[in-house]
């Protein structure tokens, strides 16, 4: 236990001392909050017909998350691939040859930081947007709103964690970025819109995650599961990525 604490401290130092990785978190915050507020301002002035239904003021405030999540994905990719692309992995495993301990400590340290930034972002984008929404605004005490805001922070954290697992399998930052980014930016969206694939696409991690953010019946997602099921689907994706990453780390030469 004392050993794990020491390695955890070391990994915390690692993740907080590289500027480029910290910038991705700053970017995640600003993208999410600014786009969320901008969308809220835009939609507020439209009639229900124009926006195709009643407004879910909570869900609208998360409009920037589809962009902000990409920065979170970048964070997840960088903290892991940074070890491999720089050769730091050799120093890291030289210092902590127990690979399971090493991986666990890195995941905990990076996830803690992502969770902190994710929650702050989710709270900020919610309250910022409600300020703009005026009469249409929701209150944090409204039914399901607090849960949605917490899930917003959780969603961003889980996206980072999922990316860490995937990157641990791929190692190369180029490979990880070129698979994850287009997937979440384009592919998942297309699959979700096309009629034939929609039924399958709803089980993708980001589509499931977005469902967690909806407040009850205001936003109709037409999904086979509710917010609780959505969380479980996301957790399953994260677990699969991390197990894959662990097996690769354990088996391959560094």
């Amino acid at each position: 236990m004392a050993h794990l604490t020491r390695v955890l401290k070391s990994e915390w130092t690692k993740v907080t001392t590289v500027r480029s990785t910290l910038w991705t978190l700053v970017l995640a915050f600003f993208l999410t909050v600014s786009i969320g507020i901008a969308f809220s301002a835009l939609l507020k002035n439209l009639s229900n017909e124009e926006r195709g239904g009643p407004l879910d003021p909570t869900y609208v405030s998360f409009s920037g998350m589809s962009m902000g999540q990409l920065a979170m994905v970048a964070f997840g990719v960088l903290v892991v691939s940074g070890e491999y692309s720089t050769g730091m992995i050799r120093a890291s495993l030289g210092a902590v040859p127990q690979r399971g301990v090493f991986m666990a400590a890195k995941l905990v340290a990076c996830t803690a930081l992502a969770l902190l930034v994710g929650m702050v972002t989710s709270v900020a984008t919610f309250f910022g947007s409600q300020l703009v929404l005026g009469e249409e605004k929701a209150s944090i005490t409204d039914d399901g709103v607090l849960r949605a805001v917490v899930c917003g922070g959780l969603y961003m954290t889980l996206m980072a964690l999922f990316s860490m697992g995937v990157t641990w399998m791929l190692r190369s930052p180029l490979l990880a970025f070129s698979i994850l980014m287009p997937f979440f930016f384009i592919v998942s969206g297309i699959l979700g819109v096309v009629e034939a694939t929609r039924k399958i696409a709803q089980f993708l991690p980001d589509q499931a995650g977005m469902t967690m953010l909806a407040v009850n019946d205001l936003t109709d997602f037409d999904r086979a599961y509710g917010p609780g099921g959505a969380l479980l689907i996301m957790l399953a994706w994260v677990a699969a990525a991390l197990i894959g990453g662990y097996v690769m780390l354990k088996r391959r030469d560094a």
């Binding site: 001392t17 940074g82 720089t86 730091m88 050799r90 120093a91």
Partner: peptide, 12 residues
């Protein structure tokens, strides 16, 4: 082979 992250200061 190099085993240092170029973006982390020497002391860190």
């Amino acid at each position: 082979a190099k085993s240092i992250h170029g973006g982390r200061t020497a002391r860190n």
